[in-house]
Nucleic acid binder design. Structure first.
Length: 272
DNA sequence: CGCCAGGCCTGCACGC
DNA sequence: TGCGTGCAGGCCTGGC
């Protein structure tokens, strides 16, 4: 389940292999992702050069001569650079074949990912236009969260996972950040004060940056078939630890469901 | 075998 | 009214 650090690590890993490379062809083996891969993509992309690769939230944006390829990894997607001649495995749905003999290959068993095309500004694309602030920028701070949350009754965890508020905070990071900030996930977001939001914004940044640092170490192996960012090896404080002792106080980690998503927290360390 | 996880979009219901 | 908000459903497959 790629979260923002993994998407950023993917971006950094892809960039040196894609920037400046000319596209020879496109192969669509199974275009039935969350939305269909545009059937005209092969004709559109052949001969274009990839200029660079950017990221907005968990969307990857490949800038080409005449537009942008928008990619999203969903929850089981991965993009890697492999020799174009390498035989595709199960769930390898899409190849962007380069003239240098490599290709960027999408594997996505659950097909929650996306491959789209836009000839216009990708930030104006309907899927991206209403995204919230990037959590690793200076614009993201406690004051911003405080302001947006006023008069809202949503539990803080669901507020954090709302992509229109802040992008890239998925279930794992929402749980872990709230633990680090000592805030109970059920607390109404509109009732939390500025000080607690300041701490929360800081813990979100720290949690994401720790993962980026951990995953970055695997970057040099990016083109390997394994190529898994290292953050999977990270030790969680609460996520998936129902009933196990809190690492700070020993209280069993509690669990509940919020918006059809699993929530984990320490009833002692995390205050309403 | 059946159930569940998960990101995130869409559609619906509700209240000011 | 219309909008913002909050909730539920749906897409899929691997793993238990």
């Amino acid at each position: 389940m790629p979260e923002l650090p993994e998407v950023e690590i993917t971006r950094r890993g892809l960039e040196p292999h894609l920037a400046g490379q000319r596209i020879r062809s496109v192969t669509i083996r199974n275009g039935r992702l969350r939305q269909p891969i545009p059937a005209e993509l092969p004709a559109l992309l052949a001969g274009q050069t990839v200029r660079g690769i950017a990221r907005r939230g968990k969307y990857l944006l490949l800038e080409c001569d005449n537009g942008w390829l928008i990619a999203h990894l969903g929850m089981s997607g991965s993009l890697r650079i492999v020799p174009a001649a390498a035989p595709p495995e199960k769930h390898d749905h899409f190849d962007l074949v380069l003239e240098n003999g490599n290709c960027m290959r999408l594997r996505d068993p659950r097909r929650f990912g996306l491959i789209l095309w836009t000839g216009a500004d990708p930030l104006r694309h309907p899927l991206l236009a209403k995204l919230g602030v990037e959590p690793l920028t200076a614009a993201f701070d406690g004051d911003l969260l405080y302001r947006i949350s006023r008069k809202r009754a949503t539990p803080i965890k669901q507020f954090l996972m709302d992509g229109a508020v802040v992008v890239g905070v998925g279930n794992i990071y929402a749980n872990e950040s709230l633990f680090r900030a000592a805030i109970r996930p059920q607390s109404a977001c509109g009732k939390l004060g500025k000080a607690r939001y300041a701490r929360l914004a800081a813990t979100i940044k720290a949690t994401l940056e720790d993962s980026l640092a951990a995953g970055g170490s695997s970057l040099r192996d990016f083109t390997d078939s394994a190529g898994k960012p290292g953050y999977f090896q990270q030790q969680y404080n609460v996520y998936g630890r129902t009933g196990q002792p809190c690492r700070l106080c020993g209280t069993p980690i509690a669990t509940l469901r919020q918006g059809q998503r699993a929530t984990f927290y320490c009833p002692h360390c995390q205050k309403p």
